[in-house]
Design a protein around this nucleic acid. Structure first.
Lengths: 342, 342
DNA sequence: TTGAAAGCGATACCAT
DNA sequence: ATGGTATCGCTTTCAA
């Protein structure tokens, strides 16, 4: 068996109460006692059982993290960011991969809810209403999705699109294709919305190419339609799709960037590895993960609206979270896949 | 507050003991009572608190998973495999990314040890002795590392190398370069050992090119040395390195596969996306993760050697784990990056 | 400053 | 078949 607080108490010749104090509120115990206890604890290799502690404090010291698909290279960066911050705050993290399944998301949120202080939920696929309901059951921060009333971390898509289109226009492009991601994806809707807004203010034609899966195969399958659209450049829903385009263009003998400029979105590590390297709108991944944890922990340190309204203090309503919404900056990474027309 | 077993007991008009029985050993309670309790539990949305349960049962229902670097595309597949199997067994998983830091590994193992039933440790960077010590503190399965006495899941590197070299030889290659990974990496040592053994039985010259980081940049930096070695083909430590080679070869104007055949190792998803697609030795990722969990759960269902020896049953010693060692098959994925000489 | 004891939520043993 | 109760490891009053 592992060493418990009783062992420490016995060896140190004090009560368990004193041990717990020496460890968590050192200032209230006599220095001599405190030091002795801490030495014994260290020598025995004692570490408090967090589950037992959580039982009484209500804080588990654990966070939950949900991602739709870890195989999508966009997410590992976020996970690493979450991990890093969580570790700094001495929290462990449960990870759940939902396999892009909205139903699995709900199940997993509920499954983890009891064992964590809060959840960071990445690009969830489920409906707003459902998510809002879940957010009422457990403290939650959204990453790369925005829903009024739930704290969230996103990035400036509009600004990113502005930079992307500005770049292409500066290179002389006037006809741009957009390869759209899943209709159900919040990110796709946001990107499309931003793109349309930007295009309206510029002298360019936008050709929207049907919705594809946000994967390599999606890009491969859309490539021929892009070629048929007689555009000089194409913006993909994300880098994976852009790389699929690149792959198919190479197979079709279309030189990139000479014959077609290709622009991605996300800036996954992969974007810099392909040839030609992909020009793309960089969305923070690591930083988004960190910000998510920051927001969550900050939320937890406030009186939680989840434990029910208090008498002496009016229950904070949704509006309370109005300020807990962060939008991270985006920036354009110009690489080899874009060049001027002719 | 969440609904507890007491709430259920009160509403159902039975004792807490009956509630717990109705839920976990239904066969010992009268059908009528059982059904009533279960209905009440369901209507109240009761789910037992796993932390509290773990306190007394000694089983938390949680697993821990350590990976050196989630940004390395080899690992997400493993994580997904672990997740899938863990979920089937109704276990949640703690994930910890060690950032390739051996010291962090030890810390995190200890940090998680108390909250999990066991750990799946992926390609750990720490020394054998240290790992062995940790394996004594908490049930542990190694994935992609083999240490006598610790259950492990690996793949048939030797066989993979045999297929790889056989492929190149069949294409007429007689001078092969190997770009080695980190000296401290177990995987690199195994691959090199296998490669040397295979080469000895074939009529080919092997040129070993110094050790590089197992990343894209490592491949980029080794490319020129490979070109200088006047070989017709090169096997890289892993796909990431191979892709770095590809990238630099393209920049140097060396056509692949016409001017150089390139062979990777791992078969990360990326390997199929680059152009030309990478011929590579496929190591199971998802399956390895699954196997890791299978082994771990199987281990946990045996009388654990970690809880100390018993009187009535001789304590199983290291040899007990002799059978808990799985070697998964590898196979060669032939794609566009290799072709015949001339 | 320290100790005794209650209690967190659940399970398991001993009675009945 | 069911209930009472000790217990897991820890924190937190309440007294001393």
């Amino acid at each position: 068996m592992a060493v418990t607080i009783k062992d420490v108490a016995r060896v140190a010749g004090v009560s368990v109460a004193t041990v717990t104090r020496a460890l968590s509120t050192p200032e209230v115990v006599r220095p001599a006692t405190r030091d002795r206890v801490r030495e014994v604890a260290a020598s025995l290799g004692y570490h408090p059982n967090r589950a037992a502690r959580g039982l009484i404090t209500g804080r588990t010291g654990n966070l939950g993290l949900l991602v739709p698909d870890l195989a999508n290279p966009f997410f590992p960066g976020i996970v690493k960011g979450v991990q890093a911050r969580a570790r700094e705050a001495d929290h462990a993290v449960f990870l759940a991969d939902t396999d892009e399944d909205p139903a699995a998301e709900a199940t997993l949120v509920r499954r983890l809810a009891k064992q964590v202080d809060g959840l960071v939920v990445c690009s969830p696929r489920m409906a707003d209403a459902e998510l809002r309901r879940l957010a009422g059951e457990v403290p939650m921060v959204l990453v790369y999705r925005r829903i009024p009333g739930i704290p969230s971390v996103t990035a400036g898509f509009l600004d990113g699109m502005r930079q992307a289109v500005g770049h292409l226009v500066a290179l002389g492009h006037r006809r741009i294709a957009y390869v759209a991601g899943p209709k159900t994806s919040w990110a796709n809707r946001e990107r499309l919305r931003s793109l349309r807004a930007v295009v309206r203010t510029a002298d360019v034609d936008l050709v929207e190419v049907g919705n594809v899966m946000p994967r390599f195969e999606g890009g491969v399958s859309a490539a021929d339609r892009v070629l048929a659209a007689s555009v000089t450049s194409v913006i993909a829903y994300n880098d994976l799709v852009a790389i699929g385009l690149l792959h198919r263009f190479a197979a079709r003998g279309v030189p990139v960037p000479a014959g077609m400029s290709v622009l991605g979105f996300d800036d996954i590590p992969l974007a810099a590895m392909v040839h030609p390297a992909l020009t793309t709108v960089a969305l923070p991944q690591n930083r988004a993960g960190q910000a998510g944890v920051d927001l969550l922990l900050q939320l937890l340190d406030q009186p939680a609206p989840h434990t029910g309204p208090r008498r002496d203090q009016p229950a904070p309503h949704m509006g309370t979270h109005a300020g807990t919404r962060r939008e991270l900056p985006t920036h354009l990474m110009v690489r080899g896949s874009t060049t001027s027309v002719h």
